[in-house]
Structures are given as C-alpha cells and as structure tokens.
C-alpha cells in the first residue's frame, strides 16, 4: 500500500502481474484486484497498461471496475477504518458508532481525512456478529464499540502517529 511508486516502477510491476493472467476479457476483474492489492488503488496508468495488454478499451475497464464497490480510484489513507453496517451490528446500534467516527474524523464514509491518515468505509458483516457492533482498522477487529471507545481508539492511532513524526 504505497502510493509513491513512480510511473515506470508501476508499469514494470504491472507487467509482472500480467504474467499470471491470460490476455482475455475474464482477466479484467482478477487483474484489477491484484493491482489494488499491490498499489492500494486502481490508478489511470495501471488501467492504460491493462487496456493495452487485454486489448479492451480503458473506458470499458472503468465501466467494469466502477460496478464493483471493492475498487478504489484514489489512494486510501494509511489506516482504513471499516465500520460494520451488517444486520447484527445495525440492531445493536452501529449507527451511533458511525456517528462518532464521522464526528471524530470529520469525513463521510468512502472518504479519506485531509491528513491522509484515515479512510472511513462502511462494510456489511465482518463476520463476528457476536461482538457487535464492531469496526476494523486495517483488518484488526475492535469489538463491542461505543462512542467513547471510538474516540479512545482514534486517539491512540493519532498519538502513535505523532510519536513517530515527533522523533
């Protein structure tokens, strides 16, 4: 998840990914997934390279990619916060947890804070409904969330960052 790759680096890396997938239409989604896994998002040069390799127009690739919520077209923040909006979490008041995240981060779901630190995402069921309501930060699950816990956790992350840059 590093967005500071130079363009040539990126194009070179993508060529490596291409080797794993045959040049046919059904490779569009698997390739987009690999690109996102490696670079954190799907960038215009990556799509251009794909277009050339697959012989499918870039707009066609964007057309497919934009259908699926998984794909991001801008680099995500350093920490991706996923707030579960699945049914089990909803009935245990996940909306007020989301509210606290909105207030604390001052961003709407689907967006990244201006300092590039946090991306807020809504997801449906993280798979631990027993611990509802839950959120996950870069995959680490935080269980039985309350508004206060949200503030504490975010504070922790912010402090961690400050300590890093402070030294």
């Amino acid at each position: 998840m590093n967005s500071s790759h130079s363009e040539s680096e990126l194009v070179f890396g993508i060529q490596e990914l291409f080797k794993k997938h045959p040049a046919r239409r059904s490779s569009i989604i698997p390739l987009l997934q690999e690109i996102q896994e490696h670079y954190g998002y799907v960038s215009p040069p990556a799509v251009d390279a794909m277009s050339e390799y697959l012989g499918v127009s870039a707009s066609e690739i964007y057309g497919v990619a934009s259908f699926y919520t998984q794909f991001k077209f801008v680099p995500p923040g350093k920490y991706v916060i996923q707030i579960c909006q699945g049914t089990a979490c909803h009935v245990r008041a996940s909306s007020i947890v989301l509210e606290a995240l909105r207030e604390e981060l001052k961003v709407e779901p689907g967006h990244t804070t201006s300092d590039g630190l946090f991306t807020l995402e809504r997801v449906a069921c993280v798979g631990c409904c027993a611990l509802a309501p839950v959120m996950a930060i870069n995959g680490k699950v935080y269980a039985q969330m309350t508004q206060d816990k949200v503030r504490e956790v975010i504070k922790e992350y912010r402090q961690k960052e400050e300590n890093k840059t402070g030294i």
């Binding site: 909006q85 699945g86 979490c89 449906a124 069921c125 798979g127 409904c129």
Partner: peptide, 10 residues
C-alpha cells in the same frame, strides 16, 4: 454469501 449479517458459508 451476500446477506449482511450471515456467516454460515464462511
């Protein structure tokens, strides 16, 4: 397994 709030198949 798209039902949000279900994890049997998982």
């Amino acid at each position: 397994e798209g039902d949000p709030g279900a994890f049997m198949n998982r």
